[in-house]
């Protein structure tokens, strides 16, 4: 018996501890991918300080911040800033209000409400580029069902994305269609996680519904509202897929947001330097936003998981 025991505990192999190295070993592959991505990022910063046009390699040279100075004095750049700002504010604003409204409608946990909220997620799961194609088909001047519907309302010659006056409206509409469910689902999760006691107390005291909404619901929902809004701001200011698939930034430069413009500078005008400078400006904006976002996000995460 005891010899058997000896034998078997010897099966517990002697093995030095690798605890100190283990975390590095485990995260090393992910770290390497990190580094692989960081290299082009640094290159982009480097390019943005150069005059660099692929079509004119002879003119390449280091010009410090000349590129940025050119950019900031270029009305096209300010057009890009303006278009991006309008797009971002319009989409996030509408999505926030609409998403909150729908979340409030679906607040109670019931089979029907859950079914509706799942159905509403479908647009969000549609690739944004494909969503643009869908709306393009529906707004086609020849047979588009939306063009036909709007003509029934007496509006003829409504040319959706092909008209500079309505192009912004059209892409915002598509963005709202795709991303409102994002707001809705996050705010719904937030609403449903609120403690019921304050609401029960308010009902017992006969507090009017409007007062409950503004003084109890909204303040308690604020962390979710802030996180969802920042999340959408970060994505919306970088929107590319919907706009590119719909109009490639046109008509004219009415939809020339940051990333679309950087893309065209790069591939159409082979202007690497300008393109890189544009992206650096966008990066600075998103970096600042994402720092605010991560703080909010971590708070919510701690609430969901205990410790971060």
């Amino acid at each position: 018996m005891s010899s058997v025991l000896q034998d078997h505990s010897a099966a517990l192999r002697r093995r030095p501890r690798l605890t100190a190295w283990l975390p590095y070993l485990l995260s090393l592959p992910a770290l390497l991918v990190c580094v692989g991505i960081l290299v082009p990022f640094i290159t982009a910063a480097w390019y943005s300080l150069q005059r660099y046009n692929l079509a004119m390699p002879m003119t390449r040279g280091f010009i410090w911040f000349g590129q940025y100075i050119d950019l900031f004095t270029d009305p096209d750049f300010w057009n890009t800033v303006q278009v991006s700002a309008i797009y971002t504010i319009a989409t996030v604003g509408i999505e926030l209000l609409l998403g909150l409204g729908i979340a409030l409608l679906l607040r109670e946990r019931s089979r029907f409400n859950n079914l509706v909220s799942v159905a509403l997620l479908l647009p969000l799961m549609t690739a944004p580029a494909i969503a643009s194609l869908m709306w393009k088909l529906m707004t086609n001047p020849n047979f588009g069902v939306l063009s036909w519907l709007i003509s029934l309302l007496g509006v003829h010659d409504f040319r959706w994305a092909s008209d500079p006056r309505t192009a912004m409206f059209t892409v915002v509409l598509v963005d709202v269609w795709v991303y409102t469910p994002f707001m809705m689902i996050l705010l719904l999760a937030g609403l449903r996680s609120l403690p019921p006691q304050p609401f029960e107390a308010a009902r017992l005291d006969g507090v009017p519904a409007r007062f409950v909404f503004f003084r109890i619901t909204l303040p308690m929902l604020t962390p979710y509202l802030v996180t969802a809004t920042l999340f959408r701001l970060l994505d919306s200011i970088q929107q590319f897929d919907i706009i590119y698939a719909m109009t490639q930034g046109g008509p004219g430069d009415s939809l020339m947001v940051f990333q679309v413009r950087a893309y065209l500078e790069f591939f159409q005008y082979t202007n690497v330097g300008t393109s890189a400078a544009l992206m650096m400006v966008l990066w600075a904006i998103t970096y600042a936003l994402s720092n605010v976002f991560v703080k909010q996000w971590l708070k919510l995460r701690e609430r969901a998981h205990g410790t971060a």
């Binding site: 990022f41 940051f258 990333q259 890189a276 992206m279 970096y287």
Partner: peptide, 9 residues
């Protein structure tokens, strides 16, 4: 981060 920032280089 804006994807094009990395993608173009």
């Amino acid at each position: 981060a804006p994807p094009l920032l990395v993608l173009l280089p």
